[in-house]
């Protein structure tokens, strides 16, 4: 459902910066629906795995305190041109999203 986008840029240290934009409501479970007055149930991304050529190199842990449509950035130092970076996330309702891209 949700679309996930990724951008890979070279950084000054000679590695790459990976930016991931996931479309997600990131509900905290504290917000109230203005019309009904009921609490909107929590719905947020919990883990986001970053893999380089299929090996997970790091995992971001997200909670309700992260803004909606989270933009997460990490740096990779071991990537070469042609390597694939893949990202997969899972939220507290078990929904998942993935995207992958090759380093230019």
């Amino acid at each position: 459902m949700a679309s996930t986008k990724m951008k890979i840029k070279k950084n000054k240290a000679g590695g790459h910066d990976v930016m991931v934009l996931a479309k997600h409501p990131m509900e905290t479970g504290l917000r109230k629906d203005k019309k009904t007055g009921e609490k909107v149930p929590a719905h947020f991304i919990q883990t986001m795995d970053f893999a380089l050529n299929g090996t997970v190199v790091s995992q971001a842990n997200l909670g309700p305190g992260v803004s909606k449509n989270p933009l997460i950035g990490i740096s990779l130092s071991g990537g070469k041109s042609g390597d694939t970076v893949s990202v997969s996330w899972t939220d507290n309702k078990g929904e998942t999203g993935t995207t992958e891209k090759a380093i230019k």
């Binding site: 950084n11 240290a13 590695g15 910066d17 930016m19 970053f50 380089l52 090996t55 997970v56 190199v57 790091s58 971001a60 997200l62 992260v66 803004s67 989270p70 933009l71 997460i72 950035g73 990490i74 740096s75 990779l76 130092s77 071991g78 990537g79």
Partner: peptide, 10 residues
């Protein structure tokens, strides 16, 4: 894994 870290943004 190796080759990651050094930067994190959110």
């Amino acid at each position: 894994g190796s080759g990651a870290g050094g930067m994190y943004s959110a």
